[in-house]
């Protein structure tokens, strides 16, 4: 663990834990969203399915609010790092989704529902954010 100047090991640990907690929240939201989507898909077309869809939409709304809250709480340097992570993650997901779409079209690969893009973005974004955070700690 790298300590910044004048920083105690306890503070350095706390700083890294805060960053890890953000990634954990990101992954947790992606996981909960995915769980509701899978449940809705398996529940068929009844009331349970409708409730799961509503819950999934609610998770997306919370997700958006968390992004906004994070974005507002960062200073200019941190915001730059976040935007870099978001841009990289979005680029990776777009390329991967397009590649898979091409494979579906040409190679008859199994269809991947577009609803999985949000949780996939969550995983890639959380990973990149951790890597960038380590590079600039």
């Amino acid at each position: 663990m790298t300590e910044l100047e004048g920083e105690t090991p306890g503070h350095a640990r706390g700083r890294l834990l805060r960053r890890a907690r953000q990634s954990m929240i990101e992954l947790a939201l992606g996981g909960v969203f995915l769980a509701f989507v899978v449940f809705a898909d398996r529940a068929g077309s009844g009331a349970a399915s409708a409730a799961a869809v509503a819950a999934a939409v609610g998770v997306l709304a919370v997700w958006l609010l968390v992004y906004i809250w994070w974005h507002r709480s960062f200073d200019e340097f941190e915001r730059g790092l976040e935007l870099k992570a978001i841009a990289l993650a979005a680029g990776i997901i777009i390329v991967a989704a397009s590649g898979w779409g091409l494979a579906e079209l040409v190679l008859d690969a199994p269809t991947a529902p577009i609803v999985f893009i949000a949780p996939a973005f969550s995983v890639v974004y959380a990973t990149i954010r951790m890597l960038i955070g380590r590079a600039y700690r």
């Binding site: 910044l4 100047e5 004048g6 920083e7 200073d75």
Partner: peptide, 17 residues
């Protein structure tokens, strides 16, 4: 300290670093 400057400038210590 970096922490003090960060506080005065209203940025994170990581930014000062």
């Amino acid at each position: 300290s970096q922490a003090r400057l960060a506080e005065l400038a209203r940025v994170s210590r990581q930014t000062i670093q």
